[in-house]
Amino acid sequence: MKLSKLILGCICLLLSFSLYAQKETNKNHSCLKCHAHRTYKYMNEDFGMEIKESMCSNRMIDTLAYQQSNHGMFKCTDCHSPEYETFPHAGNLRMELMYACNDCHAGDPEYAKFHFEAIEEAFYESMHYNRSPDAFTCWSCHNPHTYKTQARIGEKISETVSYDNNICLSCHADVSKYELLTERENINILKSHEWLPNQELHFKNVRCIECHTQLSDSLLVSHVVMSKDSAIRECTSCHSANSHLMASLYRYKSLESRKGSGFLNAVIINESYVIGANRNKYLNILSVVIFGLVLIGIFTHTIFRIFKSK
């Protein structure tokens, strides 16, 4: 009798867990059944007809990217008005103001390591904000539905580079989004970077923000995006022993790999090649020693020749 009660109890527990898990997975189902697709259907009850409509592309959600993003655990209505739960959505809901990062993250000790307050201060100094203070927000670059703290998770620097550059390109290579934020004529970045040798290689391996932001000591990623005139144009800013990249792109990675291997240049050495910045202490010493020995050999031989010719 006791055993059957125990079994029954276990079954109930399992069922409730599975129901809870089901609920969690489907927490956004009612929204995503329309917003995850290019088209959606609804019943027009006045006419008793099912209507199929196309979904506006900027209202579509990439469900996989959302699930994997930093905000993937949230219900849609955690950030959006609960009134969205009714369909058709009320027209005035479109006017709702979106949260900015610090509406949730400011002053939270759990997120202190991300320095959200310092990021906000830097953002207010950026040319993006100053040129379009009303239009430009955190979301202009960091889509809350897909954002991931890439450098902290990304295995490869090349993935971080491509992820971060795609943020810039989402406007600078897309006129429709660019026009939402500014009245300026679109910038042809291929043309404005014509001076850059091996343009493709640079674009693939260096983040836009390496040259276009002010370096920050406290932030991993500087948010002071500078105007074109203040951007770095000196090759030696990166191509030198004191490479700018070690303070930005490779900073986190090199700190991490130093912990493991104790080798200062481990990341820059193994993952990429930046002429002028890649220095291997041991190869440098070896080359100086070999070169020195050759010079000593030549010098000694010369002395013998002078001495013996007399």
Binding site: E234, C235, T236, H239, S240, A241, I275, G276, A277
Partner: peptide
Amino acid sequence: SMQYSNPENPLLISFE
């Protein structure tokens, strides 16, 4: 000059 690139070293040819 490229391998040991250093804008402060006058003995090296400029990187560009």
